[in-house]
Simulated scan of single mutants.
Amino acid sequence: MAERPTTSWRHGIAEEAEELAAGTLDPECACMAALFPEELLTATDEVLDAFEGELPGLGEASDEHVLGVVERVVVALNGVNDARNGSAFETGEREQLCDYIDESLAERGVDVPGLTARHGLGRYELTDRWRRW
């Protein structure tokens, strides 16, 4: 299954904490915990939980249904971003979230390249219509 971005972010926080504890990282260089506070991780996981709950059966679903699922997850992530004054997700995190959505759909049998092509979108523009992060 596609790895949630929040799993990677939590791993980075733990790794950084270990380096700080071992004295191998200068505290002034530590940034993971500040970039990914627990409330951001929790809010993002709640959105991804809801998204994952909608994944079963999407391989046989209509384009409109699949796009509705994508719209809901993207709009919910917009809300997470808005709650952090538009600074929840930087470029790397945006790419991870988009990749996660794409991979999760593909794992459930959705032909993402076909879906985007049928709707006049570039291969990696699936979330662009709704995304503000």
Rank of each mutant, 00 (worst) to 15 (best):
119 H>Y: 11
109 G>L: 11
8 S>C: 02
133 W>V: 06
119 H>S: 07
68 G>Q: 10
118 R>S: 12
11 H>K: 08
108 R>E: 14
96 Q>F: 09
50 A>I: 09
35 L>T: 11
91 T>P: 02
13 I>S: 02
60 E>D: 15
73 V>M: 06
4 R>T: 01
46 E>D: 15
61 A>E: 04
124 Y>V: 00
74 V>G: 05
129 R>L: 06
33 A>T: 15
110 V>L: 12
72 R>E: 13
46 E>A: 13
4 R>C: 00
11 H>L: 03
80 V>T: 13
15 E>W: 07
111 D>P: 12
78 N>R: 13
1 M>K: 14
71 E>D: 04
129 R>F: 04
60 E>H: 07
26 D>H: 10
36 F>G: 01
75 V>Q: 04
48 L>G: 03
17 A>L: 04
8 S>G: 11
28 E>L: 12
98 C>D: 00
75 V>T: 08
97 L>E: 08
86 G>R: 12
63 D>H: 14
47 V>M: 05
33 A>Y: 11
125 E>S: 15
79 G>I: 10
69 V>K: 13
38 E>M: 01
8 S>H: 11
50 A>D: 15
44 T>F: 04
129 R>P: 00
113 P>K: 01
90 E>K: 12
72 R>L: 06
99 D>P: 00
6 T>K: 05
111 D>G: 12
114 G>R: 13
26 D>P: 04
1 M>D: 11
106 A>V: 09
68 G>I: 06
5 P>T: 02
44 T>W: 05
26 D>Y: 01
6 T>F: 01
121 L>W: 01
119 H>P: 11
101 I>W: 03
29 C>S: 14
128 D>R: 13
71 E>Q: 15
35 L>Q: 08
75 V>W: 02
1 M>C: 12
108 R>A: 08
68 G>K: 06
100 Y>I: 03
102 D>A: 02
73 V>Q: 10
31 C>V: 13
76 A>H: 06
41 L>K: 06
42 T>K: 05
66 V>M: 07
71 E>G: 07
56 P>W: 08
85 N>R: 11
21 A>S: 04
2 A>C: 07
112 V>K: 03
13 I>D: 03
20 L>P: 00
55 L>H: 03
99 D>A: 00
97 L>N: 10
